[in-house]
């Protein structure tokens, strides 16, 4: 059983580096996940790990401790609806409003092993020649280097390609590579992966018309949620669209976004004193 002071120390590291909040009932989870890190560093138990941490700064070790505590659960086309909306409602509208500039930027924040940005890329590919002469950036970020390596490799197990991915998409966009499935290089090259911690200021990333930030805020405490969402809102134009996970809400977190009626998980930007001046929720609703 992990000692209370070790739990506090390790949780503190994870919290300050990633915003991840672990309640005391998650002690077993911390112990389980960090045993692998301890062994890798030649220690027999969490006591040893905590002692090393106390012994002095070790950036690599602290990074591994933090990464080990992140949740990387993901699947292709998770929840289906956001991707259908993207194709049928959000992109057509942006293609109209950006027809002069012909440039759209999408951010998949906390992309884990890449299923979300690759799902977006497959949707875009499927839209065909309508996107000729358009530049569409898919910028995908995660805090975990291990996850980004996997995402960049574009190699998935048989189990992973059967979760959420329709068979027609598998046939069209994947090749067998031994006992794994490799995503088509044409899809892979549509996504740019980058390491990014959502606690940091994202200003240098530039503007994003669409942001997917799903199933990550649930792990953060309320002030951190607010900070992340307010940072994201600064990068978005008035008619930008944010996607959050099915179990997440902006209510009580920020007034910079408001839910779009009848589109679960979809949020529009709110400028100034509220009452979205950009794309009113009703406009989206009328398209369905």
């Amino acid at each position: 059983m992990i000692k209370a002071e070790d739990f506090e120390l390790l949780c503190g590291i994870v919290k300050s580096r990633s915003g991840l909040t672990l309640s005391p009932d998650k002690a077993y989870l911390l112990e389980n996940r960090l045993m692998a890190v301890a062994r890798k560093w030649g220690m027999n138990d969490i006591d040893g790990l905590a002692a090393t941490v106390r012994g002095g700064p070790n950036e690599e070790l602290l990074r591994e401790i933090t990464e080990a505590m992140t949740t990387n659960e993901t699947l292709f086309f998770r929840d289906q609806t956001p991707f259908e909306q993207l194709e049928k409602v959000v992109l057509p509208r942006l293609l109209e409003s950006r027809r002069e500039r012909r440039h759209i930027r999408i951010w998949s924040a906390a992309c884990s092993s890449g299923q979300e940005p690759y799902s977006i890329a497959m949707i875009l590919k499927g839209m065909g020649s309508i996107l000729d002469n358009w530049r569409i950036d898919i910028h995908a970020t995660d805090i975990s280097r291990a996850m980004l390596d996997k995402a960049r490799a574009g190699l998935y197990t048989q189990f992973e390609v059967q979760r959420g991915l329709p068979i027609a998409m598998l046939m069209k966009y994947f090749q067998q590579a031994g006992d794994k499935w490799e995503i088509d290089p044409a899809i892979r090259s549509m996504v740019e992966f980058d390491e990014f911690n959502l606690l940091n200021d994202p200003t240098s990333k530039g503007q994003f018309d669409i942001v997917f930030c799903r199933n990550v805020l649930i792990y953060l405490d309320p002030p951190t949620k607010t900070r992340v969402l307010e940072n994201v809102s600064k990068l978005m134009p008035e008619d930008g669209v944010l996607y959050m996970g099915g179990a997440e809400t902006v209510m009580g977190v920020t007034e910079k976004f408001q839910p779009v009626n009848e589109h679960r998980g979809m949020y529009c930007c709110v400028r100034g004193g509220g009452g979205g001046q950009g794309m009113a929720p009703a406009n989206y609703a009328s398209n369905i």
Binding site: L75, R163, I167, M171
Partner: peptide, 29 residues
Amino acid sequence: DLEHIQEAIKAGADEYIMKPFDSEIIQSK
């Protein structure tokens, strides 16, 4: 393998599960 998947879809199958499967895969399909 891809050849069998293509053959099945061509013959009129709507979806395809590669064993081993679990309830999550069945639900997804």
